[in-house]
Design a protein around this nucleic acid. Sequence first.
DNA 1: CCCTGATTCGC
DNA 2: GCGAATCAGG
Length: 224
Amino acid sequence: MSWTDERIDRLKELWSKGMTASQIADELGGVSRNAVIGKAHRLGLQSRPSPVKANEAAQPKAKPVPAAASAAEIAPADAPRKDPAPKPAPPPQQQPAAPAAAQPQPAPAQPQQPRIVSVGPGGFLRQGPGDQQAPIPPAPPRRLVPAKPSPEVADKTSLLDLNEKICKWPLGHPGEPDFHFCGAPANPGFPYCVEHCGVAYQAQLPRRDRRPPPPLPFGGPRIR
DNA sequence: CCCTGATTCGC
DNA sequence: GCGAATCAGG
C-alpha cells in the first residue's frame, strides 16, 4: 500500500487528533505502526510525548556502560565516607577521669570491678545479694567532635562528596574499606572525567558492523 | 510481557 | 522515500 495524498491527509488528521500510531495504522490499513511513525516523521508532523524522550538533556549519542554507571549510583550507603557528619562518639570510657596525657600506662589497675557472680540472659552481669553497688557513673557530658577519617579513606572522594562537578567513577568495590570515587573534575555534561568518559562511552557502530553472534550461555553444542 | 514513539539504515 | 528492526521508557 502506498502513501497516496488521501492517505497522507488521513494520517495527518488522525495524528494531530492524538491517535496512537498503532490506531492510525489500523485505521488506514495496509501499513504497520512503524510505517505510520516513519511517515509522520518524514512529513515533519509534530512529535508527541514519547515515553523514551522524557529526558531532554540527552546530548550524547552513546550509551553509558551500565556496569560502571550503576555501580556509581547504587553504591551502598555504608561505603566509607570522609568527613562524616557528627559521628557518634566512641563508647564512653569507664574511667572518665583519666585523660590520655595523665596516664601513660595503657592498662591501669581497676580497683572497683564488681565481683561477677553469674551472667544473666543477654549477657548482663548479675550481682550477688550482698554485692549491691552504686550504679556505674555515667560518663560526664562531652562535646561531640567529628571523628578523624581512617587513614585509608583520608583524601578519598566518598559517596557524600559526589556532585555534578566531579567524576563519579567508582574505584575499588562498594563495601571495601578504601572504596571511593575518582573525584577528578567531571567532563561538563557527563558524570565522569574525560578519562573515565573514554571508558564509559563508546561510539555506536553501524548495525552491520556490530558483532551479531549472541552469547550462548547454555545449550550450545559442545565443541571438542 | 504488553504498550508507546524515536531512530537507524538496508533496500 | 519506505518501513522493519531496534531502542528505550512506561
